[in-house]
């Protein structure tokens, strides 16, 4: 039988829960409720005049071709970032998991980029790829490649994707490494004795056994690409040229902070909130089903 803690006092458990509940209410539920409230308002920057407009703000963003284009940008951006952050991480972790000299050093170096703040990472990329001050950028221009991400949609998107993915590789690497280490050696050895090649062992044993980790990372990376890449985009391209690197979260920032338009900015936040709720539900259902196998 499981050992259970029994509280004699009815109030004590609630009291112990209170700090966590209070934090959740103040820092999560209260702002979320505010966002929902503001999404139904049209308000001036100083909050001196407010009008209740039902769902007009939602109508305004959904009929804005630039908003729809930023949805497209976000999808392309997020999928690219997720793929480019997961695939190299998997490769690197498989390599680092082997018995090689100095494995710890490699591991440390691979984990390092995770500690770099997004804005600093972006500046780093700027110094590499800027067409007139960046090392590689200057080189590309010198050999005749028309490299100028300030005025080329595709190049700008490529740059923010690379910079964002690079930041996330370390995180994925760490999880894959942990996942690899929990795969029983005996299974791999048995397969090796049966004559399975290294590639075959990877695809038939390692990869399936890693699938819970991969799925978890897929969700986490998508959320990262959606919400945590703001700093990189802001420092590298500011959403330009045109609106070619304006993702949904970047637009929330621009409309709310630069344009001081709380109504449409909140409406966009609410749309994003619904999206996250959906994503979380999918994750829970899937993981619930896959956790025992």
């Amino acid at each position: 039988m499981r050992k259970r803690v029994i509280f004699n006092d009815k109030a004590l458990p609630y009291l112990l829960l209170l700090p966590q509940v209070a934090i959740t209410l103040i820092f999560f539920f209260w702002p979320a409720a505010q966002a929902v409230y503001f999404s139904t308002q049209i308000q001036d920057a100083f909050g001196l005049r407010s009008q209740f407009v039902w769902f007009e703000n939602f109508g305004a963003i959904l009929s804005d071709p630039n908003y729809l284009s930023s949805i497209r940008v976000t999808v392309v951006f997020s999928v690219s970032v997720t793929v480019l952050a997961i695939a190299p991480a998997l490769l690197l972790s498989v390599m680092a998991d082997k018995q090689i000299r100095g494995a710890t050093t490699y591991k440390t170096l691979l984990i390092w980029p995770y500690a770099v703040a997004p804005a600093i990472a972006a500046v780093l990329w700027l110094f590499i790829f800027h067409p007139s001050v960046g090392l590689l950028g200057r080189f590309l221009v010198a050999i005749g490649v028309p490299w100028d991400y300030a005025l080329n949609d595709a190049q700008a998107l490529l740059l923010v994707v690379l910079a964002s993915a690079w930041k996330q590789i370390s995180y994925n690497f760490l999880f894959f490494l942990a996942g690899l280490q929990s795969i029983p050696r005996s299974v791999l050895e048995a397969a090796a004795i049966d004559g399975a090649s290294q590639t075959r062992r990877f695809w038939t044993i390692v990869f399936p056994l890693l699938s819970p980790t991969t799925f978890f990372l897929l969700v986490v990376n998508l959320v990262y690409a959606f919400f945590d890449t703001f700093g990189t985009i802001h420092a590298l391209t500011r959403g330009g040229p045109g609106t070619s690197t304006t993702t949904l979260i970047y637009r929330v920032y621009v409309d709310g902070r630069d344009n001081l338009n709380l109504g449409t900015s909140s409406a966009q936040s609410v749309v994003l909130m619904l999206f996250v709720i959906a994503l979380t539900m999918i994750q829970f259902r899937y993981i619930e089903r896959r956790v025992h196998y």
Binding site: N152, G240, P241, G242
Partner: peptide, 9 residues
């Protein structure tokens, strides 16, 4: 500026 950038491209 956004529209200028689109035109320049």
């Amino acid at each position: 500026q956004e529209e200028m950038e689109r035109a320049f491209q």
